[in-house]
Design a protein around this nucleic acid. Sequence first.
RNA 1: GGGCGGAUAGUUCAGCGGAAGAACACCUGCCUUACACGCAGGGGGUCACAGGUUCGAACCCUGUUUCGCCCACCA
Length: 887
Amino acid sequence: MERNKNLAKNYSPDELEQKWYQTWLDKGLFNAEIEHDKKAFSIVIPPPNVTGSLHVGHAFDHTFQDIMCRFKRMQGYSVLWLPGTDHAGIATQNVVEKELAKQGITRHDLGREKFVEKVWEWKNIYGNKIIEQMKRLGNSCDWRRERFTFDEGLSRAVRHDFVQLYKKGLIYKGRYIVNWCPRCQTAISDLEVEYKEADGKFYYVKYLFVDGEINGEWGLTVATTRPETILGDIAIAVHPRSEKYKHLIGKKVRVPLVNREIEIIEDNMVDPEFGTGCVKITPAHDPNDFLVGLNHNLEQIQVIDDKGIMNENAGKYQGMKIEEAREAVVKDIEQQGLLIKVEDIKHSVGHCQRCGTVVEPYLSDQWFVKTKPLADRGVQAVKDGRIKWIPEQWEKTYFNWMENIRDWCISRQLWWGHRIPAWTCADCGHVTVAETDPTECEHCHSKNIKQDEDVLDTWFSSALWPFSTMGWPDETPELKYFYPTSLMVTGFDIIFFWVARMIMMGLEFMDDVPFRDVYIHSLIRDEKGIKMSKSRGNVIDPLVMIDKYGADALRMGLAALATQGRDILLSANKIETYRLFMNKLWNAARFALMNLDDKKHFIDKNLLHIQDKWILTRCQEVIASTTNFINEYNIGEAARGLYDFVWGDVCDWYLEMSKPALKGDEGEERRKTAAGVLEEVFKTILPLLHPFIPFVTEELWAAFGYGEISIMQSPWPVENKFLRFDDEAGSMRILQDVIRAVRNLRAEARVAPSQLLNKVVIRVDTPKVANMLNFSVDQISRLCRIKGVDILPHAAPRPAASLSSVVGNIEISLPVGDILDVNAEIVRLSQEILKIEKNVAASKAKLDKPDFAARAPKEVVEKERARVSEGEAQIKRLNENLESLKN
RNA sequence: GGGCGGAUAGUUCAGCGGAAGAACACCUGCCUUACACGCAGGGGGUCACAGGUUCGAACCCUGUUUCGCCCACCA
């Protein structure tokens, strides 16, 4: 066995991370194989958009998944982590268009085919960049199976899916009001609209009655925020039971400016309390009005075109932008004396998620998915427990959306994406929808057919990701073995966009859920809690972090910060903490290696000292808790627990206490056994840490001489009850308390740390503890810098002129002669006495309450009693201390 | 208008029924042969407010205040 005893003094991640990743790849350790004697564990990665590079939110997401994958792999599962990227239709098209704009070119200059080629070029550059970033992070993905939502296989899946849904009547085409982005020149789905509060104006406009005065009124007043759409008004609606307007139903009014005569109709959609209680109906430019229009069979007059410009139906306003037209219309109405008043209001205005432009309700031919039947099954699957949400609270959000779901507009007037597989016949008008490109109309066999120009919403292909990536629609062995996937890890921002739709499509096409568990993590924000974005310049680039601190430090930091529920506020500072941890671990290992022989060490149980038994016990406890935490997806607790264990227990206590034995001060046999324990400790913590910090653990694993098999392939530690010594572990805690108390006494009494104290007297009342402390006298003197320690029975007299401190039933006394600043100590003691008196009084009051003794559990009452007696003893002792000092 | 989450040390956050924790920051000392990327010790909190349940509440319930997020057709 070769131990590497020449580790560098300081840990540096650079070369070792590169080296090990390449080794893992070369050995094919990430490859997922179908092994029927093993249980399968699978995750499909949420495919990042190929718009740019990964941000730290991805790093977090991926770290989580990688921890789960490495954990399960070590536990003996056959693990598939399937990587890939998303073509991200509108987003990618926009970034490429922006690039072109820098050269003064639009996509129209290039034409569809050339433009799509350009986007592919972009994809090849950035897609690869993203994959490289994932590798730097240490993602243990099976790269042989990398997929792209727009690759050949997935495109076939999309077509198959579309055709099946169409045949089932779940996809339809129709002329509806959709959200239209005048800048992107495409329809977008409801989810892609972001509403923001904005200042607006409420214009009260009078529509005159055609037949003159009615009940003393010459017209009725309608309130609108969008006066330019008056030009497309086709009716006025009032509530059917409105007292105020009932008598007007059926009467006619004249639309201002255009003088069209329109009817006053009744509709339940009108809220009689809002505005003036009546609504102008513009079916072509408002989604509500559109529905009212359908119910009443009204004409749809479009006055605004797809670029947000007034069209030929707008008369003299033709050619104006919406805002210009609004101003002009208001001015003209005012001139005609029909503008009653203008009010300032706040209302929410929809903006395009991708470019921020105000979206217009726009009437056009679009394709839709009828989502209701799909959503019903999706709801059921969660109610049945076939899918578990973690944290559970998201279930509610999911139900709420699914139960109120509206049809999904899936067509986009873009060039980058899956073209809709529908061909319209110029002769008979029939639409042929087919998986393979048809050559003729399936109805009249005319060759005069033309494919729909539109492409599909990018989420349409993402929805199939869990199975399309495994070869669907073919029945592949992968699907059989790895589907449903075990876990989906993603942020709450795409629950509707993606998670819900995967569930719907998975149930529809695979007749099974796409994943068993869905873990929704918090979003990473900057240190001020603001969402990171390029435009704000507050993004933390994972690559920069990795360059600076190493991938392991970044991963450990992200893992440790992971808590359910809250946003994660990240700063470089926080990652630095974990960079220090890497160095600590590194040096602890370096120390261990300096003390290990070049052969496996065995533990002689008869030679174990208290600290050895304690650390071995702690190892078993940490194995259990870490395993449980990861199983519950609580990687934050798992990471923090390991951090504390390694730094606090192993380094601060165990390594310090094992030094004499390792030096050989306690004899050769003791040395060997202490080395054995040390080896056992590292054999435990390195694998436990591996999912979190794969690189450094692999490097150290090799340095310890275990490199024949990768730490990735080493089994996940399991509790060994033969290495548990609960009794001694308890004693060790007492010993720690004693040592801390002595150190504390020294420091409080201003004894210089360099000063070697002559003697400390420890009085104990149980022989067992006395025995234990006697055994550890050398440790105590070494760790507290004292020449000698006397362990005496409690009955022995307290040394004269000494300060003392108490831990449980142990009293520790320090000769007063060594104290430097007597006055300071007197003040401190007086304050402490007051504090303890207060606590004792509180405990006594508690005990005096009759209910407490009667109802509280025995051990709680006992504890309270002990507090009182201990407190009283302490006060007595401190008073003695005071006296000692004053003399 | 509905729904969700947060309010704990100077800061960022754990804890979620039995006497308040960590990391940074701060103060006192230490280069003690793994680590100064470190060690030892310390100060610092009416756990937002008000009620209630309980022998006992940071934790459970009810309000209030406040910050943030999501959903919804406020014409």
